[in-house]
Computed example of a mutant assay.
Amino acid sequence: MQIVISALVIGGISALLAAILTIADALVNNYGEVSIRVNDSKDLKVKGGATLLSTLASEKIFIPSACGGKGSCGLCRVKVLTDVGPILPTELPYLSEKEKKNNIRLSCQIKVKSDISIEIPEELFNIMEYIASVSSITDVTHDIKEVFFDLEDEIEFKAGQYVQLIVPAYGDIKGETMRAYSMSSQPSVKSGVELLIRLVPNGIVTTYVHKMLKVGERIRILGPFGDFYLRDTDSDIIFIAGGSGMAPIKSIIFDMMEREVKRNAYYFFGARSKRDLFYLEEMKEVERKMPNFHFIPALSDPLPEDNWEGETGLITDVVDRYLSEQGDEIDREAYLCGSPGMINACIRVLTRHKVLEEKIFYDKFG
């Protein structure tokens, strides 16, 4: 715990120093017009001085960034083919040795001061900005809201992908803030997206959604992003999630049901007590329509008043018991969504039961 706190403190100090340097640089320097060469095929003429992340966004090229460019998520990686100086201390925690050697950088930390050449995945050119209006807000648990956004333009995505939600300035929060949320609606619903947003203490976006967001409000959404989606194989499927990690798994499962996918699938959903469970009836309905689908909710700390008769214990223990009973000879792949600690624990259990690491896909958050 002390190591985690120290890392968070260091990360916060680094982000603050980066912000101070950015402001000072903008006040002192005027870089004029510069060129960004993208994938050796597209040239952008832009005003110099801003970060690569924000500059590309101004040209409608959106790089993934769960933290909204604050230097605290490490998602906004791009390959930089031009010398833009040494890797910054704010980038180091998020880059592997291989990425460093391959000139991978965090676009939110690189300033566009002169002509630059970069490489990005081609699919990022398909990312769009959507104008959305809130059509419904529903409490599904005491700390998770289901929010549906109607979109002015139709969206195309794979079940399991995410979008970035942009909320306006409020209170002491200066400027817009952006955070990433997995879509819980299925791809057949093209006119809007459904998100499951859990209230995080002191979370800028989650606080806005839970305390201020209103039906009818217009808001901006970027997407779709991500490579967390169901692979087209014949393997049995293990889904594991907890809390708002339900979102991408729900999207995948409902998409499977619509497409009449016949694969064996087990969905292990972990919660602390009964008040943290939701969509139970919806999952029972899926079980009725998909004979090969099995939903296994489990409570790690059920209350006496819960009168819980289902599985108990940590979700990893429940998964371990099920896989032990079924045997390790079955060809399986797994899809996990939750905190890094939960996902790492699940990976250990799965690999112990002969699930290959290359067949374990996950979406980490928090």
Rank of each mutant, 00 (worst) to 15 (best):
P187I: 02
D255E: 13
S244C: 08
E258V: 08
T206K: 11
I253A: 10
S251P: 06
G216D: 10
S182N: 01
E260K: 15
H210I: 06
S251L: 13
G223F: 04
N202S: 11
I219T: 06
P248L: 09
S185W: 08
R179N: 12
F269I: 00
H210N: 14
P187S: 11
E260D: 13
N202R: 13
P224R: 04
K214E: 10
Y266W: 15
V193I: 15
G242I: 01
D234A: 09
Q186C: 05
T207D: 14
P248Q: 09
R220P: 00
K214M: 09
S191N: 14
P201K: 07
L196K: 00
M212I: 11
D255A: 12
G245S: 00
V200K: 05
R231N: 14
S182Q: 00
H210P: 04
L195S: 05
L196H: 13
F228Q: 12
H210Q: 14
S235A: 14
P201S: 11
S185V: 03
F228K: 07
S185C: 06
M178K: 14
Y266G: 05
G270S: 11
P187L: 12
G203A: 07
I237C: 02
F225H: 08
R198S: 09
T206I: 11
A271T: 06
G243A: 12
E258G: 14
S182G: 01
V261S: 04
I253E: 03
F254D: 10
A241W: 03
L230D: 01
I249V: 15
L196C: 02
K250G: 00
M178F: 03
L213Q: 08
R259T: 07
S273F: 08
K250S: 02
S235N: 13
S182A: 02
R272F: 08
G270D: 01
S273R: 05
R179Y: 10
